[in-house]
Design a protein around this nucleic acid. Sequence first.
DNA 1: GTGAAAGCGCTAACAC
DNA 2: GTGTTAGCGCTTTCAC
Lengths: 330, 330
Amino acid sequence: MRKSTLEEVAAAAGVSKMTASRALRGAADVSKKTREKVLLEAERLSYVGNQLALSLSSQRTNLVAVVVPSMLNIVFPEMLAGISAGLQGSGMQAVFGISDYDMAKEREIIRDMLSWRPSAIIVTGLDQPPETVRMLQHADIPVIQLIDLDGTPVDFNVGLSHGKAGEEMAAALLAAGRRRFGYIGCGLERDLRAGKRKAGFEKVLRENGLSFQHERVDGAYSSIAHGKQLTMSMLAATRDLDCIYYSSDDMATGGAFACLELGISSPGEVLIAGFNGLDVARALPIRIATSISPRRQMGEAAATLLLSASRGNPPSEKVIAFYPEITGID
Amino acid sequence: MRKSTLEEVAAAAGVSKMTASRALRGAADVSKKTREKVLLEAERLSYVGNQLALSLSSQRTNLVAVVVPSMLNIVFPEMLAGISAGLQGSGMQAVFGISDYDMAKEREIIRDMLSWRPSAIIVTGLDQPPETVRMLQHADIPVIQLIDLDGTPVDFNVGLSHGKAGEEMAAALLAAGRRRFGYIGCGLERDLRAGKRKAGFEKVLRENGLSFQHERVDGAYSSIAHGKQLTMSMLAATRDLDCIYYSSDDMATGGAFACLELGISSPGEVLIAGFNGLDVARALPIRIATSISPRRQMGEAAATLLLSASRGNPPSEKVIAFYPEITGID
DNA sequence: GTGAAAGCGCTAACAC
DNA sequence: GTGTTAGCGCTTTCAC
């Protein structure tokens, strides 16, 4: 069955398209009687407005484009949930795209999304290649780069410094007396933020005359199973370690499982340190150290920011900085 | 800077809108020279096509609407990743909405999405209220109900029987010699599928003259922390149990953590049984039983289905059934 | 191989 | 309070 149009609703109600349009949008100056008649006919005809026509005509959409690298790492869905919640009630609608950590794919997704003329766009990270940056600049809408703060934003920037997060974790672990460090990570060539954390961590180690004594890094996607496997491998090779820093909490959770299976006392003998503050890491039977990243709040902050921007209240600050809280040490 | 239009590109290239349109879409009958000129000018003007105008004019969109209840339970993002992957390369674009397990919210999201005139719509589960069902029927596009099979579909149906999954898990546990069962669940009034699994499980218990001897059910959202807490509470009250069935694997993972902390031998003394086959459950230092639900494959199957439907190849079957595999028993 | 005219369904702007 | 006119940016259709 063909979808009915505003014109048909208007005809059925015996008014013009314009009056029907006003009635359906709840405009003030429509007589009560007319409004009710229009709403009744719309209901009877199962009328569903056409956003394509609406947006084309009014030159604005209620769309916010969001591009994330993955759905398989829970932090991104959590961020999306934050964005979605922050947009709640504003009439804005988030549209998500997944780039699979692939810059070329990200560029194509952004291009696709821009062709829908969204009111704003949120992308992950600050490390887009020049061509993508150019597209974003040309889009002439608020651009929010989310999660990371280490770099030069195109427009708005909401996130935390991953370099600093690594530094602070290293400092906290040193202060707690740990000295013999290992590193276990995954997909650093894709997950640039994990790389920044590692670099920050290493910087502080170096300043203290130390370095990672053992490393296991491979190109696979971050996962619990992988963290477990790499930890097993490292602990089979050496026990001369009192702390392992992981690229993220899922990897660290795998590390905790490895310790449990091997019967290695943790945090006593080896302290496991991750990043994110995932639920799973907090419920673990052994205590692990982590930096809690407020990803839901970052999503909400981004939503709030772009709502005020698109309402013409230019936010005073282009950058909103968050600070991860370190837990699980002592 | 205002976005440039097809008309401007055409003017710059010295051709008509129509020719520019053909060149940009890669139509066959445009001379090579003309095409190159148009592409060059489009590039120079940073031209980005306008999908609003395109879709309004051509009366079709490349949009697939998808509504999920939550982003905080990893199974839904995994399903979305499957849909997104299945759509890859088809030119179709998935648009996601989150209902928060709220039927009224789901209805409004579906209404919103339909106003964009998507080519198909995918919703979670089969238990939409009549008004929502009516909207879906009126939409006159392929409707896919995903994940669940226990009910009457509006149109297409891809999923598994959660009732059966519960039955089969109970049967398998009984076959393995377990007799004294507990149940721990969360949010069953929202998560109807968890309720169906429980009902199936209880049915088989009843047929064997058994029942759940202990239950802990509350209305919170499913989580590892919650599963741990409810398990602690149950095991503090009784040890007269040899198996606990959980509403899902995250709850079950919490249960496994509880056993580890309490030093209860598992699966020896108490077997933990969940549902989904989450990565975390598989990497756990103790073995737990679970039904592995192929959520990514279900997403991909839905994508494949609607692609063939929208290409005019009516799929022969309206229902695609998946069967979860039970692991971790013996 | 290219172009002109009509129209997709709606809203903005203005008239009454 | 309601209607009219014009037009959003593209594709469809048909003509050349």
